[in-house]
Design a protein around this nucleic acid. Sequence first.
DNA 1: TCTCCCTGTCTAAACGATTAGACAGTCAGC
DNA 2: GCTGACTGTCTAATCGTTTAGACAGGGAGA
Lengths: 347, 347
Amino acid sequence: MTKRAGKAATLADVARKAGASTAVVSYVMNNGPRPVAPETRERVLAAAAELNYRPNRVARALRSRTTGVVGLILASASNPYFGALARHIEQALDEREKLTLIGNADYSANRQQHLADRFLAAQVDGLVIVSADGAADVAVEARAAGVPTVYVHNAPESPRTGRAFAVTADNDAAVLEAVSHLRTHGHTRIAFLAGPDDAGPVGRRRAAWETALSGTASPLLRCAYSRAAASALTRQLINEDAMPSALITGSDEQAIGVLAAAHAAGVPVPGRLAVVSLDGTPDSAYTAPALTVTEQPLRSMAQQAVDLLLDGTSPRPAAQAGLVLRHSCGCSPAQQSGPVAGARDRR
Amino acid sequence: MTKRAGKAATLADVARKAGASTAVVSYVMNNGPRPVAPETRERVLAAAAELNYRPNRVARALRSRTTGVVGLILASASNPYFGALARHIEQALDEREKLTLIGNADYSANRQQHLADRFLAAQVDGLVIVSADGAADVAVEARAAGVPTVYVHNAPESPRTGRAFAVTADNDAAVLEAVSHLRTHGHTRIAFLAGPDDAGPVGRRRAAWETALSGTASPLLRCAYSRAAASALTRQLINEDAMPSALITGSDEQAIGVLAAAHAAGVPVPGRLAVVSLDGTPDSAYTAPALTVTEQPLRSMAQQAVDLLLDGTSPRPAAQAGLVLRHSCGCSPAQQSGPVAGARDRR
DNA sequence: TCTCCCTGTCTAAACGATTAGACAGTCAGC
DNA sequence: GCTGACTGTCTAATCGTTTAGACAGGGAGA
């Protein structure tokens, strides 16, 4: 009855109260690896309940050399695309009874390295890395430490050896779909809004666009992956009267910034400017006008990454990015359903 | 040179190589608590570097009864308001050298309880709980285990005892500001879009609205905290011709849903419908039209929560929610700056 | 009756760090 | 020269689990 406040009950406390050894108590708590007589089991369970016993995962981790914790390093949690990916990864890990240690690298290779170090010191069972650019391969250390590592969204540049995988979407197919759809709307010159450099998946998207549009004098634009940067660029283009008539943005964040600036300047979308974005986050369904996007299969990518991390293999096929037609491309609102077309409540 | 792959170097390995005891190695690694001769320190450091020694935090945690890990339980990571809060909390913890274990309760009291249990088993040094409604007080267990707990955004209903704090924003002031601003635009009947019930901060906001608008026959609307729900409700109101002329939304998510549906139905905002939202997430600056909001001081709330958690007290004053004028309220685009007014790149 | 195997239990050795206690040597003050 | 205070180091206990090894008792099969 009297519960000593400062002290949590331990295995030994339970054993004492149940009149058994710590070994049997452990066998009961873990259902094994040795059998326990039903009557003893009852006594142990009763004692544990009475003492409000909660196994100390730290001690277990030390002994069994596995913590049940996975580290997740995000390029940036501010970007909803990465945020959504993180959510799905956390969920997939939770379903596998893993806890998620999260960290924000803020697009900095240094911070990414720093976080990886701290996570490895914390003895994580695995590392999931969502990086935006081809930063130095963090996984080499993880591999040296025998910690499996999976890259999501962006594969590291260095050749992988040992147990490090990457789950990426098919960027080429997404770009081709976007281009051919804009062509059905009559566009022949289609601009592309890329990131500040060509590292990472957006760089590959840009390359695919370049191939598809070669010889058409379609302009290449660049700005940081933020709404603010895209807005500023758009305002500038409008002022200089250099606005293209069709634009593919490398990320939703940029598309949303473009839309906001166009709206503020009274530039009609899609009338004067048709936009297709390549991420397809939930946000994209609620812009005005609603964005046409190629939706990245974030959930299935997350699922696959976790399978790869924990099993070394994934039973599920890689899902395809799919074109979701809304209004920013020029498709008529009438032929589409409401503003939530293509939006789902996730989780 | 030959690095044994499967095995990480331990304190004992370093001690052996340096010709010292594990105690001195520990003293060197932690700068204390006993002094070490400079020459010995050198030898130890050299050995550690050569073996690529990384202290095992799990072992340290077991012995020193502190893990350096804090658990963060989110009502929903899908909601950008909570997402932003989580980012700031993680950042504040990182600055204090703490790791963040994250979990998503998905608006379920059961899952919240489940996560708290798992985090406590993992021996977290503290718990930060961001819940949306007044669910049962999870902190009682944490307190029993001697783990400090802080609620952010929403205070638990049960009276707090022991070491459990809550950091909340001043909802009344925010609502009053929103109401009086809409009145300057000539509105007298101002609807309020609340959540499905009156639990949590949005419930308090609703109460403040009710007090301020009593006797004006301003309609109370309700829907779930999601864009989809708010969009559906808005479509319905438009179809039934029951749209109010001014609306305060309890959350940005709902406001964005309202805006999307209004845009799709051709209802002009703010012309036919003026909107003010009460969260003020970064998203709100990039809607069309840009949302006028009362901006919650998320960053300072996060900072304060972390101070409270780790120090039991916070030196910083509670920041106030501030009205950010954009266009959805009826303020003219001309008198405001671009679409990014009030938006900052965070972190 | 004598093995052999099973079941159920206990004892004790890990896991890798932290740190109190013991102790040897040095040096200052008397 | 003796005492006491430091300095620098080592030995070993400890944190709370897991689990291999030992062992007792009880059939089953010969």
